[in-house]
Amino acid sequence: MPGSRLLQSESRELVAFRIGPQEFCLDIKTVREIRSWTPATILPHAPHYVLGVINLRGSVVPILNLAERLNLGTPEPDARHVIIITVIETQVIGILVDAVSDIMTVPESAIQPTPHVASDSAQAFVRGVIAVEDRMLRLIDLLAVFPPARKEGA
C-alpha cells in the first residue's frame, strides 16, 4: 500500500447509479459492462434477492436485485432497468439497478466512512459515502452484497 500522503492524492473512478431516490456507486475497476435488462431464468431455492441467471455471451451470470438486497422495495424488473455486470474476485455477477447516472473521478480523501445509522443494510453493504455537490453517493461493498461463501455450494 502506498503511504497516506500518496493515498490522499490518489483518485478513484466511480460508476454512479440510482435505485429509487438513492444514489450509489461502484469502483469502475469492478465493472465489466452495463447492459439492458433481459429476463432471467429463475433459480430454485435461491435467496429472494437473486433474480436468476442470464446468458452473457455464453456464460451463466447470476443477477442480484440490489434494491431487494438493500431492502429498498421490490421493483418488478422491466426494460427500463439496467444490469451492471461486475467482477468480484473470480465471480461474475450482474446487479439490477434503476439507471446508471454518471461516471466520475473523486479523490480518495473524498470517501467518508459510513455514518452510524440505524439501518442494518446500510451498515452492512455501504463501505463509505461520498459528497458530490449536494448529492450523497453510497459506495457499495460488493463482497458483502454477494458473499463469496456462496461458492462453497457443493
Binding site: 433459480l43 455464453g58 456464460s59 451470470v61 447470476p62 465471480q91 461474475v92 455450494g153 457443493a154
Partner: peptide, 10 residues
C-alpha cells in the same frame, strides 16, 4: 454450462 463459477451449486 457450469454454474459453479457464478452462483454455486443448487
Amino acid at each position: 454450462k457450469g454454474m459453479e463459477n457464478g452462483y454455486g451449486r443448487i
